[in-house]
Nucleic acid binder design. Sequence first.
DNA 1: GTAATTGCAAATACTTTGCCACGTA
DNA 2: TACGTGGCAAAGTATTTGCAATTAC
Lengths: 142, 142
Amino acid sequence: MPEKTITELIDRCRATGLRRTKALEQLLITLLEHARPMTLNELAQSVRLTDQCDKATVFRLLQRLTTIGITRRLGLHERAAYFTLLLPGRHQDYLICTECGSIEPIKAPCPVHHLEEEIREKTGYKNLYHELEFFGICPACA
Amino acid sequence: MPEKTITELIDRCRATGLRRTKALEQLLITLLEHARPMTLNELAQSVRLTDQCDKATVFRLLQRLTTIGITRRLGLHERAAYFTLLLPGRHQDYLICTECGSIEPIKAPCPVHHLEEEIREKTGYKNLYHELEFFGICPACA
DNA sequence: GTAATTGCAAATACTTTGCCACGTA
DNA sequence: TACGTGGCAAAGTATTTGCAATTAC
């Protein structure tokens, strides 16, 4: 299954004109393996990418991937930006500890879809999506 | 009404040990007047604060205010952090244009409270709160 | 062969801190 | 008077860009 997903992702990239480079491949695999938002630094230092390519390369790749909708850039309150894969039909909300910074995907279904529809209709915004995060102090830190 | 709110805010600050300084006063008034999240830069450059105090001062004040729960720091996807007043019983969600960066408070009631309760109970997180933002391209930019 | 991609280094942007002068209590 | 605050300047951290060398197609 991951095999298939990787191939699909690369195909989607190539369809938009990106070249199939080692850096792109390893970046996508890294994002897929971790399945959680990661910072540029984390990504560039991850095993698959260290000694594989420069941080600037990862940065530019993430930029392009975000433009074509393969990844998304998240805020999450840290000074550094987070990036996550945007897999079709797999929206995620997060629970974040403000002390230790742990990021936990929320299992419950997202209760925002209806409001999102309403906003789309009433405001005329295009390409609408949302980001929902819960912040608090996790039991371990409390 | 704003008069009263300002006084209340300053009292809350003083109660935690902060001194009543011109910078603090002007910062609170500025936040109250704008009623939307603002960056450190915006705040420091706003009429009430320019020539009134240094950006570092605004930064340190916002830090303290955030610690004692008068303001909150938001991500909002920009490189710069945003700060907003935390008025009791007045949670806000936002609609943000990814092109021009405009930030619009959402009028509809927030649909997340129930899930927030559920998370509070099931996970044992303390001081739980959430942040919900919708991103898209506004009609003017589209 | 040609144009996209990369690495390296330098430039930006925003945030954060040190230190001494100053103002509030 | 004493200690919290403020200004200025410098340091820190994350992001972004320029350009020549390299690589995919």
